[in-house]
């Protein structure tokens, strides 16, 4: 269970102090699938970075299963079981996909285990396992490898920042399966997904709308989804798909 108590974060921007996260309090129980949505610049990625320890809050407290993790480092939070898939994945010269998955697993997993994670994100494992995680990978490939790097870890809380961005529609179906599987696995685990996609919102247990650094709406999917469908920041599925067109979703 993750608890945020009055979390705030501010940073200097063009010489003046800017409040980016304003006094957010939330509780995310185990086995919950929570989707955070909201307009661009609303503070979603910043909140995710605070949870992962990449930014340190300027105020408030954060607890994981009752333990105060407010000021823990990125490494400590990772070791406590927090996983984070970046909105913009990082590239490395010389580090292969297999290396990255092994680092993520924290042990020398076999090639076939590593391949399983790649297959889950819809990549043909043998084509990718020895590729470098460098600029030669396309945006969508990189994004899927980023997701695989979180799947390879045994996390209690997984945070995915716009996992669907740059991913084609076939994989999109896969992606939803991945989240559902993570939630129904045998360990107590919560999944937080930051998304603008209606299809992802529609499988949420709870939806949080973040705007201007504050929680503007928070409730079950059934309460929130009807209120926000059609708003600027929620994207529907492409009409072609709805008509049973080419996209195999």
């Amino acid at each position: 269970m993750l608890e945020l108590k009055n979390i705030s974060f501010g940073a200097d921007s063009n010489g003046s102090y800017k409040e980016i996260i304003r006094d957010i309090s939330l509780t995310i129980p185990d086995n919950r699938f929570v989707v955070i949505t909201g307009p661009n610049g609303g503070g979603k990625s910043t909140l995710a970075k605070l949870i992962a320890g990449i930014e340190q809050p300027t105020g408030g407290h954060m607890l994981l299963d009752g333990e105060d993790i407010t000021n823990k480092s990125i490494t400590e939070k990772a070791r406590l079981g927090i996983g984070f898939a970046f909105q913009q994945p990082v590239r490395f010269k010389g580090i292969t996909v297999l290396d990255l998955l092994r680092i993520a697993a924290g042990k020398t997993i076999s090639v076939s285990e590593a391949c399983d994670y790649l297959s889950e994100v819809g990549l043909c494992a043998k084509d990718y396992i020895n590729r470098e995680v460098n600029a030669s990978l396309s945006g969508g490939e990189l994004k899927r490898i980023e997701i695989a790097s979180v799947l390879a870890r045994n996390v209690k809380l997984a945070v995915f920042d716009e996992p669907e961005a740059g991913i084609d529609l076939w994989s999109f179906k896969n992606l939803i399966r991945i989240f559902e599987k993570m939630r129904t696995g045998n360990i107590q685990r919560s999944v937080i997904v930051i998304s603008h996609q209606e299809r992802i919102l529609s499988i949420a247990d709870e939806i949080i709308v973040l705007a201007d650094g504050k929680v503007s709406k928070y409730g079950t999917k059934d309460e929130i989804l009807p209120e926000i469908i059609g708003s600027d920041h929620v994207k529907g599925v492409c009409p072609k798909v709805e008509e049973g067109g080419n996209c195999d979703v």
């Binding site: 990449i54 990125i74 490494t75 990772a78 996983g83 994945p89 990082v90 993520a104 924290g106």
Partner: peptide, 9 residues
């Protein structure tokens, strides 16, 4: 940062 989020120091 990325590798630290995977648990490395």
């Amino acid at each position: 940062i990325k590798l630290m989020t995977l648990g490395l120091t």
